[in-house]
Design a binder for these strands. Structure first.
Lengths: 108, 108
DNA sequence: ATTTAATATGAATACATACTCATATATAAA
DNA sequence: TTTATATATGAGTATGTATTCATATTAAAT
């Protein structure tokens, strides 16, 4: 009970390749100020591309490129309404992680 | 109670510059496979640079460079023991976020 | 004082990425 | 069908970053 020789062979089991890739990709999505601003805005309400562009003072092209990035990772989704595309959050869990990080850097 | 005209002027209040910077920087630390592997290893036990290098099959120089990155963000700390430097986690909250993300990408 | 072992650092390089511009696509209205 | 509006996309560019190599620093041991 008090000695651990029986469990000596105790080498570290790393993360598998696929997990490592998805984790790093998803954190990468959260590592850019522009994408953070877009996600944070969408976490308050659904927005069209134009609304995001206006609210955050970004180029329309920049917003479209970043939304494609976020859509590929299934972090956001969209619906069409006339000629406008309304984007919204598609992964609430990741938004929770973002909010936890925002809270973390502001306190402690 | 049922109409909201009184609170019409409802524009979105974005994140301040400093928060945005720290959040993006911290997520950036978590967005690289090598740094994730190092942090994940350190979350299981304190390690010297040599141990990290051996366990993860990385170049010593690579490990040192990444540890400096993580140390600047105060994600890890170290203590000296002879000529070895033992690194360990200095921000358990960020490790919690990392573990949540690992769990997230493996399930849902 | 030399030597050895552990770690850190600077420079060079190869690669990734964010933005902008110009243009294409798509839907709706006239 | 033409026009207008909204969004997407490809190319170009500038900047950032991860790794490696060579070398410097540091502490311990002889």
């Amino acid at each position: 009970m008090e000695h651990k020789e029986q469990n000596e062979c105790n080498h570290y089991k790393g993360l598998d390749e696929e997990t490592l890739f998805m984790v790093s990709q998803t954190f990468k999505a959260l590592s850019d100020p522009t994408r953070i601003r877009i996600l944070h805005l969408l976490s308050t309400r659904e927005c069209s591309v134009n609304e995001i562009t206006g609210e955050l003072s970004l180029m329309q092209s920049t917003v479209s490129h970043q939304l494609r990035f976020l859509k590929n990772l299934r972090l956001v989704k969209f619906r069409r309404e006339g000629t406008s595309l309304y984007y919204s959050i598609d992964d609430e869990h990741v938004i929770t992680l973002l909010n936890q990080m925002i809270h973390h850097v502001n306190h402690d």
